[in-house]
Nucleic acid binder design. Structure first.
Length: 374
DNA sequence: GCGGATCAC
DNA sequence: TATGGTGATCCGC
């Protein structure tokens, strides 16, 4: 073992390098950002805080999980692996049989939605770094702010350190809902059963409208984006592909105000998916990325198939099935029945306290808010 | 069945 | 000074 001073993994002199946040992830508009500087400032502003301590606790837990998985991996015999490979080969055939290249899905994603809406109602913000939110939390940053490393989910007081001229605009959901409704009227013209993901994104099955009008998916995407712009003054990006999982990945490629079409052709899909980092896939977050990379050496979607036997050996059937289908570029192609909500909740963050009376009054307050919502 | 963890927005 | 809120799902116990 080498943990001497010369080791490249020794970062005792640069402690921020081991403080992993989501803020240095690739995100549209952040290509030229000095990641090292952002990471250092986030670390300096964070270290010692209760938040930071909790992050350290979670980090340790994750390391433990990865170690456990490595142990299980090392214990696998070659006959185990041969058997799991048979499972993989069978599942590949079964999954491949479900591949449906007959549908055309479009994923629309509004560009820096809250920030763009605020700029519409106050054009003097145009061209200036701006964030929607406050000093404790930022919901969205415009592209000028992203150049400084400022982004959604970042605490405002850190963002201000990165970009001292940053303008803060408080959130106003009434406004965003209004504009969201305008965009949804446009979406409805292309797919009356479109799936709204949130205020600012949606999935549309445009198979029918393409066929009826004799237009390609790319042409429909062009027209839809122009229509959204003329109805709202806002820009959006789109991805077109054979299923929702791929369409979602595609809408991010030419952001902002752009689109990307992936042809409905098996070999095109396989080429596209093979080099794709697993973190680009919806459902694979920071933790799963870390586990798959550090325990199994999986970084790209292609490796999900190549190391399929390990996945079936170490994960549950349903997780392994999901990973394998990702590696094959498969995804949902049906329009699901609209489902009713399964839960309702209310929560609030407040200063730490051991005062029993204070805790009970907080509890009563939150229960009251929940009751109101219900 | 429950609580914690993960994920997305 | 200061690190969100809502809903869903999965996993281990």
């Amino acid at each position: 073992m080498d943990d001497g001073e010369s080791s490249s993994t020794n970062n005792s002199s640069r402690p921020w390098e081991s403080y992993n946040t989501v803020f240095t992830n690739a995100k549209a508009g952040m290509e030229g950002v000095d990641k090292e500087k952002v990471q250092r400032i986030v670390y300096e502003m964070s270290k010692g805080s209760k938040y930071f301590q909790n992050e350290e606790r979670k980090e340790a837990l994750m390391k433990q999980k990865i170690e456990h998985m490595r142990d299980r991996c090392a214990k696998l015999s070659s006959s185990d692996l041969t058997n799991y490979q048979k499972v993989v080969d069978r599942r590949i055939l079964e999954l491949e049989a479900t591949r449906d290249l007959s549908k055309i899905w479009l994923h629309v994603d509004m560009d820096a939605f809250y920030a763009a809406v605020e700029t519409l109602s106050n054009p003097s913000l145009k061209g200036k770094p701006m964030a929607v939110g406050g000093l404790s939390m930022i919901s969205t940053a415009n592209y000028e702010a992203r150049k400084f490393g400022v982004r959604a989910a970042m605490p405002g007081f850190i963002a201000r350190k990165l970009c001292p001229d940053l303008i803060f605009v408080p959130v106003d959901f009434t406004k965003y809902t209004h504009y969201s409704d305008l965009t949804r009227k446009v979406f409805g013209n292309y797919d009356p059963n479109f799936i709204a993901g949130s205020l600012d994104e949606a999935y549309l099955d445009i198979t029918e409208v393409c066929r009826e009008r004799g237009l390609s998916g790319g042409e429909i995407a062009d027209e839809l984006r122009a229509s959204v712009h003329s109805e709202t003054g806002l820009t959006c990006s789109a991805g077109v592909a054979a299923n929702r999982l791929l369409a979602k990945v595609c809408s991010d490629i030419n952001k902002p105000n752009g689109q990307f079409v992936l042809q409905n052709d098996r070999s095109t899909v396989m080429t596209f998916i093979s080099s794709l980092p697993i973190r680009k896939i919806g459902g694979i977050g920071k933790v799963t990325e870390h586990i798959l990379k550090d325990a199994l050496g999986i970084k790209t979607c292609e490796e999900m198939v190549l190391k399929g036997s390990l996945l079936y050996a170490l994960f549950t059937q349903s997780s392994a099935d999901f990973f394998l289908s990702v590696g094959l570029g498969l995804g949902k192609t049906d329009t699901p029945q609209a489902r009713s909500r399964k839960s309702i909740s209310s929560e609030r963050t407040f200063a730490a306290t051991g005062e029993e009376r204070l805790l009970y009054s907080k509890l009563a307050e939150i229960a009251e808010m929940l009751s109101h919502d219900m």
